[in-house]
């Protein structure tokens, strides 16, 4: 079992959901990213999704779009993100899921990326615009190398597609809580959480709910039902609002600590 599956297992043993925290690599810069990932891990993040910025993030709302633009202006590349993972690995064992869009991966080379990501200490991939039909070129080498490939299930996915995601998952499945982009306001997180719980039983895999989860109260809504909960835009906004790296680190510590307060199941 990989680090990500272990993290979900540990959370389950502690009778809580796993907390997955999204950060955009290189926002505000890659040195800061090291500190921010370490801070998130120290404050209770079970898994970190490390966003690889892309120029045209069609599934993201304004907060993560801006973070990606800041990061790209600073010169972030996929190769530099992998170097950063290597640095992070000297400081923490928190599972790191590389999260992004397909074109930078295609440009890097799928097999080369899998090899380099494994060597850097990354644990897997989640590629927003790479549905199962198009994913063989990355998923095959990744799974062979022991890295996770995290599929997505959306509210629009039919039973066939849900089953397909279940078969592909090596650790968890990312459950998109609603039709929308990241950072939207969830309309009915409670229903989405219950639906996720039913799918977990059906598929025998943990689900983490993302999109529209921002606060401790949101986390508390999800936690009794789903095995994982993802907070992204709220973290990115806290970093954006900070005047310095130190402030950003403090803000992430405070936010992640607060979010962990919503994880416990009654």
């Amino acid at each position: 079992m990989g680090r990500i599956a272990d993290a979900f297992e540990n959370a389950r043993n502690e009778n809580r959901a796993a907390l997955v925290i999204y950060l955009c690599a290189g926002d505000p810069d890659l040195n800061a990213t090291v500190e921010l990932v370490v801070a998130a891990a120290d404050s209770g993040a079970d898994v970190v999704e490390l966003g690889v910025p892309f120029s045209d993030p069609t599934a993201d709302g304004p907060a993560i779009q801006r973070a990606a633009q800041r990061s790209l202006r600073g010169g972030t590349t996929l190769a530099k993100v992998l170097e950063t993972v290597r640095v992070i690995r000297r400081r923490t064992d928190v599972p790191i899921l590389l999260f992004g869009y397909y074109n930078p991966i295609l440009a890097y080379g799928e097999q080369k990326l899998v090899d380099d990501a494994a060597e850097s200490g990354a644990d897997g991939f989640l590629v927003v615009n790479l549905p199962p039909e198009e994913s063989a070129g990355l998923r095959g080498p990744a799974v062979e190398r022991g890295l996770d490939f995290v599929p997505l299930v959306a509210p629009t996915s039919d039973p066939h597609r849900i089953k397909q995601a279940g078969e592909m998952a090596t650790s968890f499945i990312y459950y998109v809580s609603m039709t929308g982009v990241t950072g939207s306001t969830a309309t009915d997180l409670a229903s989405a959480s219950k639906r996720a719980a039913a799918l977990q039983r059906e598929l025998g895999r943990p689900l983490a709910i993302g999109f529209g989860v921002k606060t401790k109260a949101d986390v508390a809504t999800v936690s009794p039902h789903a095995d994982g909960v993802v907070v992204g835009s709220a973290v990115v906004q806290a970093i954006e609002a900070a005047a310095s790296t130190d402030e950003a680190v403090a803000a992430v510590r405070a936010l992640v600590s607060e979010l962990t307060g919503g994880l416990a199941r009654q």
Partner: peptide, 12 residues
């Protein structure tokens, strides 16, 4: 060609 889109759009 192909379909490189978010899962949400695949059924549409």
């Amino acid at each position: 060609g192909g379909r490189y889109v978010a899962e949400t759009l695949m059924p549409a």
